[in-house]
Simulated assay, not measured.
Amino acid sequence: MATFDGLVNLVVVYATLALAVWAFVDALIRPAAGFVAAGKLTKPAWMAITGIATLVLLWQGPLSFLGLPAVIAAVVYLVDVRPAVRGLSRGNTSW
């Protein structure tokens, strides 16, 4: 029988892994010019950061020594970089 602590740990592991995968896929689909125009690191740099974060969370989990920086890296991308790049990629396209 599963304990409450075990279920909470499982939810945290899968939620942080999903967060990192979301950050990686979002970095993958954004245009490279948007990163430079927003004044952020380049697209390959953010792809590497979020990709490594995903691998770390997959292998070690969020509660390990490298897990917390991996979660922070994914959150920084989603909270800071994604809105800046997303706002620039829309442009002024009116129908």
Rank of each mutant, 00 (worst) to 15 (best):
A27K: 04
A48F: 13
R90D: 09
V8G: 04
K43W: 02
G6Y: 03
A84R: 15
G51L: 01
L58H: 05
W59H: 14
I72Q: 13
F65R: 08
T42D: 07
A53P: 07
G39A: 07
S64H: 10
A2Q: 11
V25A: 10
L28V: 12
P83M: 01
A45L: 14
A53H: 01
L88P: 00
L58C: 06
V36D: 11
G87S: 06
L78C: 15
A73M: 05
I29V: 14
P62D: 00
R86N: 05
P44H: 06
R86H: 10
L55H: 02
G91Q: 13
L55M: 09
A32H: 08
G91Y: 07
A84D: 05
N9C: 11
Y77F: 12
A27Q: 02
I72G: 13
K43G: 04
A38R: 04
Q60P: 09
A53V: 04
I72L: 14
K40M: 09
W22Y: 05
I72K: 15
V25N: 10
A23K: 02
T3W: 00
V13R: 11
V36E: 12
V81Q: 06
V21Q: 09
P44R: 07
W22A: 10
A73V: 05
A48W: 08
P62S: 03
D26P: 01
W46C: 08
T3F: 01
M47R: 15
L63G: 10
A84N: 06
V12S: 01
V75F: 01
V13N: 05
P62G: 04
F24G: 02
T42Y: 06
V12H: 04
G34D: 02
A2S: 12
P83H: 02
V12Q: 04
V71Q: 00
G61P: 01
A2F: 05
F24C: 09
L10W: 14
W46I: 11
G87C: 02
T16V: 04
L10K: 15
G34H: 00
R82H: 08
A48S: 14
W59K: 15
A45I: 14
V8P: 02
S89E: 15
A2G: 08
F4P: 00
V8C: 11
L55N: 03
V36F: 02
I49F: 01
T93D: 07
L63S: 10
P69I: 09
K40G: 00
G39V: 07
V36Q: 12
G67K: 13
T3R: 05
T54K: 08
I29S: 12
N9I: 13
F4S: 10
S94V: 09
G61M: 03
V8A: 15
R86L: 04
V25W: 04
K43D: 02
S64F: 03
L58V: 11
T42V: 09
V71S: 00
A27G: 07
L63M: 08
Y77V: 11
L57Y: 00
F65S: 06
W59P: 13
V81N: 03
N9L: 09
A70V: 12
I52A: 12
I52V: 14
R30A: 13
V56D: 07
L63A: 13
